[in-house]
């Protein structure tokens, strides 16, 4: 098989797969919320309401597209695109399995193993904020602008602790490539712990997950769309599939973030204590590693839902305070400790 064909298959495959997860997530979110809140949730469309996302999709696609009269048309249309494109493309460097050997050819289960994967993720991730701010601005709605502003301030602020938390991982593993980090997490650490990032960087993990929640605009950091305060934030004026793009983009972001968390801190496709790769054939190991990876990812996706329906929301100034006064000093401290530790042990 040609390399480019494999690349296309991987791109399309993972794109469809991530989209599928995002679609299912809309169902999981509502159903999970309902079960947490002692109610059944959507259960009419199909078994357990599983076709609910489908119904929603049909609804979003068939609704009339309305552009508000005084909106800035170009920005208004560009908003959702600019938001969802980076969301989809960010997954390119995140692995989704070990490797698979087909016809003597070794195919790594990752769209592209960039050796500066971190930088790519940070760069692409910060693109998403344009979609939010342009959408908010272009709608010509005060609530939208407020939402856009909130989102901008929040995403820009939390990129710093996010990056700083990642630096700890880089120190530990000495590489920027997500695949290399994943591979390095095999085996055990100190004899009894799995050799996972979380055990080497516990503080970094907490910082990263908090910053990631903020980047994804999820509760408790969902100020940009704080429903009770600014109606729906930056997508107040959006309808039909443009709104759909925003929503899907958000869920795709969640998948990406969960993927990164798993790849960096939760041992990627490795099972703790057991090296399944040694027992399984090349093809089956590829499939199994893929399954293990996405099991872990789904746990973190569920965490997003779970946290959302447990916590209240921060206030704008508190989010900023937590980011600049709480997370950044802690992240710097984490880097310092890590560096010291590495210096002492190596």
């Amino acid at each position: 098989m040609d390399d480019w064909l494999i690349a296309i298959i991987k791109v399309v495959g993972i794109w469809v797969w991530v989209l599928l997860i995002a679609v299912v997530m809309t169902w999981v979110e509502r159903r999970g919320a309902a079960l947490i809140q002692d109610r059944p949730g959507p259960n009419r469309a199909g078994p357990f309401g599983l076709f609910q996302p489908l119904a929603d999709g049909i609804k979003l696609f068939t609704k009339e597209e309305i552009i508000p009269t005084n909106a800035q048309k170009l920005l208004y249309i560009m908003g959702p695109l600019l938001f969802s494109l980076p969301a989809f493309s960010a997954y390119a460097v995140v692995p989704f399995g070990d490797k698979i050997i087909l016809g003597g050819k070794e195919i790594i289960l990752q769209v592209s193993d960039v050796n500066v994967g971190f930088l790519y993720i940070l760069a692409i991730g910060s693109m998403g904020v344009y979609g939010v701010i342009l959408g908010g601005w272009g709608s010509n709605n005060k609530y939208s602008i407020l939402g856009g502003l909130r989102s901008t301030a929040q995403m820009v602020s939390y990129e710093v602790p996010l990056g700083l938390a990642l630096l700890g991982i880089v120190f530990v593993y000495g590489t920027f490539s997500l695949r290399d980090i994943s591979l390095a997490q095999q085996g055990t650490f100190l004899g009894f712990l799995p050799n996972w990032g979380i055990f080497k960087q516990p503080l970094g993990f907490i910082l990263f997950i908090v910053a990631a929640y903020a980047e994804a605009n999820r509760v408790p950091f969902d100020l940009p769309e704080a429903e009770s305060e600014i109606v729906s934030g930056y997508h107040t004026e959006y309808g039909s599939m443009r709104l759909g793009l925003y929503l899907f983009g958000e869920y795709v972001n969640l998948v990406t973030i969960s993927g990164i968390i798993v790849a960096l801190y939760f041992g990627s496709w490795h099972m703790p204590y057991i090296d399944l790769g040694a027992y399984l054939g090349p093809i089956s190991w590829g499939i199994v590693s893929f399954c293990i990876f996405f099991l872990k990812v789904s746990f973190f996706l569920w965490m997003f839902v779970w946290v959302r329906w447990t916590l209240p929301r921060f206030r704008y100034d508190q989010v900023m305070g937590l980011g600049w006064r709480g997370l950044i000093p802690l992240a710097l401290f984490n880097i310092f400790i890590t560096a010291l530790f590495i210096q002492l042990t190596v």
């Binding site: 809140q37 002692d38 109610r39 408790p220 704080a226 447990t310 916590l311 209240p312 929301r313």
Partner: peptide, 16 residues
């Protein structure tokens, strides 16, 4: 109050 501050779940526990 909970709903307006973003905490949805207590609302349901109380409303039941």
């Amino acid at each position: 109050l909970g709903v307006d501050l973003g905490a949805f779940t207590p609302f349901f526990y109380l409303i039941i």
